[in-house]
């Protein structure tokens, strides 16, 4: 049993099939395109959709950055980087500015993206209506008829109960004023970064075998109401490492009494910021 693998693991036929799906997804922003997802040597739920997208668009000259929860150094980000180093001999970077291709799970980097960059999202549940209507034939119809009232009702019920919208991550958006889309489980803090982003935004759901996309400079609007506008999380305090008040902060528990410090979730941004403010 001798085995040899193609550049970036997937065979060229499969990559071509996935690139066709990407083109279709870019042509219909926010629409979930079914594709013949392949089994990958990493488990479903670990980013197989994102890995297939990355494998299909990556070239030998690309600079790849992989983050998980904003960090370059979490175990899954490391594992995915190893995968592409091993199968494609690709150059790895942590620098958001010089990366040509960024694969992410649950965050968008704080450093603004630029024209020419591709951001690949790992998506667990591509259907934004899944928890309202789990049956796929039904949600297909709802998208077809642009019947999104039930999602507004859900948000309204939050307001009635809590006085505000309670969705904290995977906050639904409308893309190009048409399709309702799941931005993947990014915190709603990151939603505004999707709006008219100069980068190509690709979303891959491996287990559910669907791809969707947002082309550059596309309107992406988070759902809200006139009297209850979309609002972002905010923190009382700043990052304990770099002092930033302009980034998503994680809480770190530092002792048994539950004392907490706040730290930037985006480790690369934090390091750069700390370097410039504390020379």
């Amino acid at each position: 049993m001798t085995v040899s693998y193609n550049f970036a693991y997937l065979d060229e036929q499969s990559k071509k099939m996935i690139r066709r799906a990407i083109l279709k997804a870019l042509a219909i922003p926010g629409f979930q395109v079914p594709f013949g997802g392949r089994e990958m040597p990493l488990p479903y739920g670990w980013g197989t959709g994102g890995i297939q997208l990355t494998a299909s668009v990556i070239g030998p000259d690309d600079q790849l950055k992989v983050i998980d929860q904003g960090s370059d150094d979490t175990v899954n980000a490391i594992s995915i980087k190893h995968f592409f180093q091993k199968t494609a001999g690709i150059a790895i970077t942590e620098d958001t500015e010089t990366a040509t291709l960024i694969q992410t799970r649950h965050r968008i980097p704080e450093t603004p993206l630029k024209k020419g960059q591709i951001l690949v999202f790992q998506v667990p549940i591509p259907e934004p209506l899944q928890f309202i209507e789990p049956k796929r034939p039904q949600t297909l119809k709802m998208h077809g008829y642009e019947e999104y009232g039930s999602m507004h009702v859900k948000l309204y019920e939050d307001i009635a109960r809590f006085g505000r919208i309670a969705t904290a991550f995977d906050y639904p958006v409308r893309v190009h004023h048409r399709y309702l889309m799941s931005p993947s489980p990014i915190p709603k803090y990151d939603n505004p970064k999707l709006h008219r982003s100069p980068a190509v935004l690709l979303f891959g759901a491996g287990r559910e075998k669907r791809i969707y996309a947002i082309p550059p400079y596309t309107d992406v609007v988070s759902l809200d109401f006139e009297d209850y506008p979309f609002e972002l999380e905010h923190w009382e305090g700043a990052c304990a490492v770099c002092g930033s008040t302009q980034s998503f902060l994680d809480e770190i528990i530092t002792d048994d009494n539950g004392t907490r410090v706040l730290i930037c979730s985006d480790t690369e941004f934090c390091r750069k910021n700390a370097g410039s403010s504390q020379p």
Partner: peptide, 18 residues
């Protein structure tokens, strides 16, 4: 098996939002 066990992956950010 993959999707159930992916809960072992870090979810710090989503948990933070909650």
């Amino acid at each position: 098996s993959g999707f159930v066990q992916h809960l072992k992956l870090p979810h710090y950010v989503d948990f933070q939002s909650e």
